[in-house]
Write a protein that binds this DNA or RNA. Structure first.
Lengths: 238, 238
DNA sequence: AGTGGCGACTGGTACGTACCACTTGAGTGG
DNA sequence: CCACTCAAGTGGTACGTACCAGTCGCCACT
């Protein structure tokens, strides 16, 4: 029951171990050991194993097949929404991206950030606060968190450019998937001034967790000026 | 383990009962009975109760607070990004969809509608104007256009339910793909009154063209209340 | 050779128990 | 009156057991 060094609950530990295993040693379609085998191998109860596997299945890492086994999920090909960085996104639209760095700091992961990045609460993360501009006019305000354990020395880099490029080139951790929540909000006073819109103006908010090799490497929340930005997407059945 | 009357496993039945309870009798922020109380009241084990509550919490219906209780979430509806009709979308969230038919007419396709539906300008289309509600509170205002050449007698049907179901069952034209543009707007006066929000409140706007067998069969523009609706999506590389 | 059934796996559901971690509020001491 | 303590209640984790429900391959029977 007790965990010596901030490792978190057993099922989280198991979840992380399995996620790592999947990321490093297994390929899509591979079958992972059965629940009862994992129970024996890791000396935990089957309920604990199921809690870990269930979480991974909900994340889309694993796929369960009743009567057959649990498998490494196929990479999603149906989603045609691009996992693009702001810089790439703007370039694609023919605009010139620039960035004003508002704040950087090294801090401990909040519960929410820890959950998104699959870290223990309090684990070291880099926090990045940036104002993204297109053609020198404000486009979006962005707050990002990055796991320092997976990205050592992250804050020592140049951070006004494309973080995705840094992840790809500097760390060999190309973002290759993610999940995103999207909603709309009215701009609060401070945010309105920063983005140079009227208070109450509609903003599009994206909360994104990006993965590389099935491990979270970025968690960002971005507020976009709705008068300058829209999204296009393809829809599939189901 | 057999369940004669209710459909499916116990925890699903409990989940549905609780979702219904939340929808009909409770307000956001209300506390629901504790796990141990539900265990006694429904004569099921705590594990079963937790499975039901966990599912509802992941859906955003409930919010758990360690040491304090489980509460009806303020959370708005979260839509996965698939080609689902409004009715299916709401039902999936445990909300009851209803529709107020504001206008129907047979008209000629405008240039914009014609382009979206791959018709000649002026070709006969059905125009549908509807107010979509969830649990009897306004959720979205929607204007749709449907090509009458592909859907003969379209306006003679019952149009307050699911149009997608009508397309599937009545015309054997199941929507199986589509494209969508998404942005945010501030609610204009008339729209604000209709949706029962303050003028200037943020709305999420979807402009969608749905296909069946590679042919466009629907073009809709929907204005969703941003305080009640959000979207979840998966991101893929490139 | 075809096939049907059975058995041995897989995950799914459901029960019970125990204890930990966090929150809250009532009660107590200053 | 305030500050603090602490007990009771909450959800969280973890163990164990039992049986149900699909899947699939072996094998005996036809």
């Amino acid at each position: 029951m007790e965990q010596p060094a901030g490792e978190g609950p057993k099922y989280r530990q198991l979840q992380r171990r399995l996620a790592e295993l999947v990321a490093t040693e297994l390929a899509a379609g591979d079958r992972i050991p059965s629940e009862r085998e994992l129970t024996a191998r890791f000396s935990v109860s089957r309920a604990t194993v199921r809690q870990a596997l269930g979480a991974l299945a909900r994340e889309g890492v694993l796929e369960r097949r009743h009567g057959s086994g649990t498998f490494v999920a196929e990479r999603r090909v149906t989603s045609r929404l691009h996992l693009a960085s702001f810089s790439e996104d703007m370039a694609r639209r023919g605009l010139t991206p620039t960035t004003r760095l508002l704040a950087t700091e090294r801090t401990g992961a909040s519960d929410e950030v820890a959950a998104a990045l699959a870290l223990s609460p309090g684990a070291p993360v880099a926090r990045l606060e940036r104002l993204r501009c297109a053609d020198d006019r404000p486009m979006a305000y962005e707050v990002g968190h990055y796991p320092l354990a997976r990205l050592p020395g992250f804050l020592e880099h140049e951070l006004t450019g494309s973080v995705y490029e840094l992840l790809r080139e500097g760390y060999r951790r190309p973002p290759d998937g993610g999940q995103q929540l999207l909603w709309a909000e009215a701009a609060s006073g401070a945010l309105a001034r920063l983005l140079e819109v009227a208070a109450g103006a509609p903003l599009l908010v994206f909360e994104r967790t990006s993965l590389s090799r099935r491990e979270p490497i970025e968690h960002t929340v971005s507020w976009y000026r709705a008068d300058r930005y829209r999204v296009s997407m393809e829809l599939g059945p189901n």
